[in-house]
């Protein structure tokens, strides 16, 4: 199902991302931050989809671990990779905004620190898959599950420690003219996410088929 929706997703993603720049361009300026606040239209949706992706990865890892479904493992690899990609986007665009809004590149603020930690956990997940050797798929699954359950703990602990970021309450309170482009960008990022997920899962499937073929040939050669 995921694979069959690729052409449709491709069209919607491209359309959404072609329209988004104009919507952002036409959105009103923010009163205190001005132009730099426009980073928000891609920064925040990327962050939201990153957290979503982390949960996709954690849940599919759990399905893989307890049910032994190879398909779930492929979704988990794909979601882990995309979490890291989106995390990189969030962590790179955030400082650019912070430089203007707060005057520094990085602040040890709750949201920043938890995003960084989430990014680190899923990078660790990919590192295990890459360098862990045999059985690393299960280990990576465990890291993803633990990472998913760790999100609230990281958030609460860092939150009590520090807070500076604009609050989440800012989203429902977005002024008219800012709300629409924002939700549009969320949809655009969701569509991009599902598209990339489908493509990455396809790659994992092809690799699995290739491995199976090699084994088959090997068996035939040795027989």
């Amino acid at each position: 199902m995921l694979q069959r929706s690729v052409p449709l997703l491709l069209v919607t993603t491209i359309a959404a991302f072609s329209v988004a720049p104009f919507l952002i361009h036409n959105a009103p300026y923010e009163s205190t931050m001005g132009l730099v606040q426009k980073i928000f239209y891609f920064h925040a949706p990327a962050g939201i989809v990153m957290f979503l992706s982390a949960f996709v990865c954690g849940i599919s890892s759990a399905i893989f671990l307890f049910r032994g479904r190879q398909g779930a493992d492929r979704v988990a690899v794909a979601a882990a990779e995309l979490t890291v990609l989106l995390g990189t986007i969030v962590l790179a665009t955030g400082p650019l905004w912070a430089r203007k809004a707060w005057g520094v590149w990085w602040q040890w603020d709750a949201r920043l620190t938890s995003s960084l930690l989430l990014w680190m956990m899923f990078t660790a997940c990919l590192l295990v898959r890459r360098y862990g050797g045999p059985g690393s798929d299960k280990l990576a699954a465990a890291v993803a599950i633990f990472g998913m359950f760790n999100v609230p703990f990281v958030y609460v602990s860092v939150n009590v420690w520090r807070t500076l970021h604009p609050k989440t309450t800012v989203v429902p309170m977005l002024g008219p003219g800012m709300r629409e482009p924002f939700w549009f960008c969320i949809l655009a990022f969701l569509s991009l996410y599902v598209l990339l997920l489908a493509l990455r899962v396809r790659l994992a499937e092809q690799q699995a088929t290739l491995d199976a073929r090699y084994l088959e040939l090997d068996d035939r050669a040795s027989a």
Binding site: G132, G135, L139
Partner: peptide, 11 residues
């Protein structure tokens, strides 16, 4: 779990 893994000290 890392007992069997290759680069366990780093991981």
């Amino acid at each position: 779990m890392l007992v069997r893994a290759r680069s366990r000290d780093v991981l």
